[in-house]
Nucleic acid binder design. Structure first.
Lengths: 201, 201
DNA sequence: CCGCCGATAGTCAAACTTGCCTAATACGCT
DNA sequence: AGCGTATTAGGCAAGTTTGACTATCGGCGG
């Protein structure tokens, strides 16, 4: 969990602070940390002895907020986790790749169109990140790591947009989905008109 | 869920078949579908009326296996989901990016070394995929989509390896993590030797 | 002055995942 | 023939994640 890292960084914090920071990083998109998970995670880390409750102040009639702090054991665990992530190469799982596996399930024109659209969206994203990086706000008020992250996203985005267009070209050109010798229908008769056919495993 | 798609593709199937296919795709790595999830998913899809139980044959004393088939409603749902994934641009969430956000928590030499290592691992992966693509087995016995997928992974891998090396260079060159004007320590005094210090948020 | 809206903190039950377990048969090895 | 291991199917309880919800206060437009 990277909640641990945040607590370490912001030292005495309460859940809501963590939530805001996480959202400001847009971390709900690229880490799997939705706001709802935070409090549970904090409590669980507390039970494991990685965090320690520091105070439980109450301002007015608002819900009491509990402040947490990291313990030495927590620091240890955090560094272990961090090194794991930095050194290990964990496969990134991409929902689009999952969908792409079902390529033959879409009519060719639609598949090509979708890919082209995706390519454009990616390029737009790249442009917007370029603009962000050029802006003074990012350069002067955020850690440099942010820019470097953007750089990676830009590079990935460009490569992927190129790929989308290349594949779209092939699909439009009618490149067959299955190799010559292999039995099976080339497309999955999308929509209706599906009759029984022999599919031996 | 992409289980739905598999059932549609392999028509009457029982859970174990789905599991094997999924594993043979390596889908446990890039989709979030571990073998244990499959049966639950099948049952749930059945309850929702997207799948239909076809038979429950029992061979010998083995556990009975229930065979499923997709319903028209299921086909609809599948196509909706598929289009969603093809057209929408869902952010891929990458655990490494999460870890990279904590860059200053690692000593510079280690961070640089980790990045270089990562770069090499990525290049090795790229090479192995290149080899796979060149091999006849892939070309002649798998859908072309597989090769295209590999192509994307190769491109991504290369771009990312380049990035790793670029960033490692910068880290080694001692580029500061924080912009000039900003208060805060440059690194997070990793390891020991951490004494209390004034960390005003 | 009043009502509406957003920010503040956090809870909760439901849904989803996951790793591990069972239990019998087929198969290869000595 | 005896034995160990892999394969075949699938169950299950425990852990995680999530989206929706509560309830209040400060400020702002009308």
């Amino acid at each position: 969990m990277m909640i641990l890292g945040l607590v370490k960084w912001m030292q005495p914090v309460h859940g809501y602070d963590v939530r805001r920071e996480l959202l400001s990083w847009g971390a709900d998109k690229w880490a799997n940390v939705q706001p709802g998970s935070i409090y549970h995670a904090l409590r669980k880390l507390g039970e494991e002895g990685l965090l320690r409750e520091v105070a439980t102040e109450q301002v007015g009639v608002r819900p009491a907020r509990t402040t947490y702090e990291i313990t030495p054991k927590g620091v240890d665990e955090f560094e272990t986790l961090l090194r794991d992530l930095w050194w290990g190469n964990h496969q990134t799982n991409d929902p689009f790749m999952a969908a792409f596996a079902f390529l033959p399930a879409l009519p060719r024109p639609e598949a090509a169109a979708a890919l082209r659209s995706r390519g454009q969206v990616l390029r737009a994203g790249v442009e917007s990140m370029r603009a962000s990086m050029a802006s003074a706000w990012i350069r002067d008020s955020k850690p440099v790591g942010v820019s470097w992250t953007y750089e990676l996203w830009i590079a990935r985005g460009e490569v992927e947009a190129d790929w989308c267009e290349r594949v779209a070209d092939r699909i439009e050109a009618g490149v067959p989905y299955l190799p010559e010798g292999l039995a099976g229908r080339d497309d999955w008769n999308v929509g209706e008109g599906a009759r029984e056919q022999n599919n031996q495993s």
